[in-house]
Structures are given as structure tokens and as C-alpha cells.
């Protein structure tokens, strides 16, 4: 069986990590992959730390458990770094991608990883500039595509455009804003 890429999202309730894991699963599925996308259902309080998960691979995925050893950890809210260990269980060679204005070197001072790499992208800043609101989840996916190469970026853009058009009922300005955000994050993400 081929390699399954495992992803864990860290965010606060209301920041869109569940939507992001759903959208990522749908997009990768539309691009021909086997996928899983699911959040951890807790008390569902706005602002409380929460996690969501993805698995993406070329073969059927049967495991039904939270991701324990992620290849990629996506941190939507940098204020989580001080309160929880986002790197828990990170696979050797894995990457923690953080939504922050800091460089990976600066971020490492806040997150002293033993193994694995740190990557950063100002997903909030990008989404404010392109979508007009602080919705970092789609640009985080753009950055993830650059780091992971899960699916070719052109194919990703094409499929997520269709997904977003459906999701936003054809509101093309919102869709175009998201696509711009995804492209900018793809270009601007920095990794160690």
C-alpha cells in the first residue's frame, strides 16, 4: 500500500479548521485521491483549542482514529504555540506550518522542535489583503500544497475553484479572492 500523508490542523473554535479539513478532503478526492477529513468534536466552544485531521493517499484508507503521527501540522492560530504542544507525535522529517508573520527561524524560538521543520506563512495577512477577512484556512492549503506536493498545484487550483464555486453558490468575487490567497501563500511560504 502506498504512503498515506497525515495532516493535523490546530486552531481555535470558529477559525474554520473543520471547514478546511472538509474542503481539503473534497479537493484531494476530486483530484483522484483517497481521503479522510474529520474534526475532533469537543465542547465546540468559540475560541477553544480544537483539532481537525486529514489523510490523503493513493489507496483506500481504513484506519478510523485521530492522526497521531502527522507528516504536516497546520497551526491556524499562532497564539496556540504557548498553550499546547502542536508538534506532539510529529513524524521524523515532518513539518509544522504556522500562520504567522514570523520567519521560520524566529518561530523556532517559540516552538523548539527536536525533529522536523518549521514553515511559516502570513495566511491571515494574505486573507485580509485578498478576501478582506481574516480567514487563513484556504491560504494555509496553498502553502501546504507547496510543502507537500500532495497533488500538482494546477490541478489543486482547478479542483478547489469548482469546490469553492459550489460552496459560495457562484459568488465569483469570494472565489477569486480565495484563489488569489491560495496562490500568494503558495509563493510566499518559507520553510527551513
Amino acid at each position: 500500500m502506498g504512503k498515506i500523508i497525515e495532516i493535523r490542523w490546530h486552531a481555535r473554535g470558529g477559525q474554520g479548521a473543520k471547514t478546511a479539513s472538509t474542503l481539503l478532503a473534497e479537493t484531494c478526492h476530486a483530484a483522484g485521491k483517497y481521503v479522510q477529513g474529520f474534526p475532533e468534536y469537543g465542547p465546540e466552544r468559540m475560541g477553544a483549542p480544537m483539532r481537525a485531521f486529514n489523510r490523503v493517499g493513493d489507496d483506500p484508507i481504513t484506519i478510523h482514529a485521530p492522526v497521531e503521527h502527522p507528516d504536516f501540522v497546520l497551526v491556524l492560530d499562532p497564539t496556540l504555540l504557548g498553550s499546547i504542544d502542536v508538534s506532539e507525535g510529529l513524524r521524523p522529517g515532518g513539518t509544522v506550518l504556522i500562520n504567522t508573520t514570523l520567519s521560520p527561524e524566529e518561530a523556532r524560538k517559540r516552538l523548539p522542535l527536536k525533529e522536523g521543520k518549521i514553515a511559516t506563512v502570513d495566511a491571515s495577512g494574505i486573507s485580509l489583503a485578498t478576501i478582506g477577512r481574516d480567514i487563513p484556512n484556504t491560504p494555509m492549503m496553498g502553502a501546504l500544497m507547496r510543502l507537500s506536493g500532495i497533488i500538482p498545484f494546477d490541478l489543486f487550483l482547478e479542483t478547489i475553484r469548482k469546490d469553492l464555486l459550489k460552496k459560495f453558490h457562484g459568488r465569483t468575487n469570494v472565489v477569486e479572492g480565495n484563489l488569489k490567497a491560495i496562490k500568494r501563500a503558495y509563493e510566499e511560504v518559507k520553510s527551513e
Binding site: 479539513s21 478532503a25 478526492h29 483517497y34 481521503v35 479522510q36 477529513g37 474529520f38 484508507i61 478510523h64
Partner: peptide, 12 residues
């Protein structure tokens, strides 16, 4: 089916 585990998880 299992609540949340499959009911709320997206898969193929």
C-alpha cells in the same frame, strides 16, 4: 454506524 467517527468523517 459509529457516531462522529464515520458519521462526521469524509471519506471515499
Amino acid at each position: 454506524q459509529d457516531g462522529f467517527i464515520t458519521s462526521h468523517g469524509i471519506e471515499n
